[in-house]
Design a protein around this nucleic acid. Structure first.
Lengths: 106, 106
DNA sequence: CTCCTATTTGGCAATATCGCCAAATCGCCA
DNA sequence: TGGCGATTTGGCGATATTGCCAAATAGGAG
């Protein structure tokens, strides 16, 4: 594998890795409906605010979400809605796996 | 976040995490063209065979690729071609990030 | 049966990720 | 100006990932 390919794939992996966590998937799915401030997300997730803030910064750094300070809160919104379509393939894989399981049980 | 959502997102994250590595992205992209045996992939990647084998088993366990023993080799093929479409969104994010960078430089 | 090739598995050290607490910022309002 | 609520950052222990080597396993050829 040449250096150029290596760099391209590392950039790609960095973005995919940002989504490879249940809490961050929840954030993306929640922001897909509409924007939320950190305090709202924290309440929905049920983890420490600092934990949620770090998850948000991971998603922001790779350019998937965007933040906007308004009043005393920071509102986050989904910048790349295409990731939602991206997830449908993952659901397909899950469904296919379930089918495979069924076949084995029979 | 309720237990059911938690479980659903964990299953989703497991699959996404399997792709969140440069070498495994290379494997998926390479298998998208046509099947390859472990020795071919190892030569293309340039890592230890055992390392490549472990990457392959990670992708196989989440149901993205499939293996088939033929002769003395094990051939792997892409079981879920939809992941390729999945990647186009990631490329969109990378392009958008590059655009953003440009704006800052100007 | 025995050697040889292809692949997988075990194990280990280096590194990265995760989630919480505590502390630092930051803007706003009395 | 001082304090308050919202958010981010620093840091730490616990856990997970990564890649290599060595060893185990599996099949085919001689």
């Amino acid at each position: 594998m040449d250096i150029k390919t290596q760099n391209r794939l590392e950039a790609k992996a960095r973005i995919i890795k940002a989504m490879a966590h249940p809490t961050r998937l929840f954030i993306v799915e929640t922001l897909a409906k509409h924007e939320h401030c950190v305090c709202e997300l924290t309440a929905l997730i049920g983890a420490d605010v600092s934990t949620v803030s770090k998850h948000l910064s991971i998603l922001r750094e790779v350019g998937i979400i965007d933040d906007e300070k308004r009043g005393s809160s920071v509102y986050y919104q989904l910048k790349m809605p295409c990731v939602m379509g991206f997830f449908s393939c993952v659901d397909t894989v899950i469904k296919a796996n379930a089918q495979g399981q069924l076949k084995c049980i029979r």
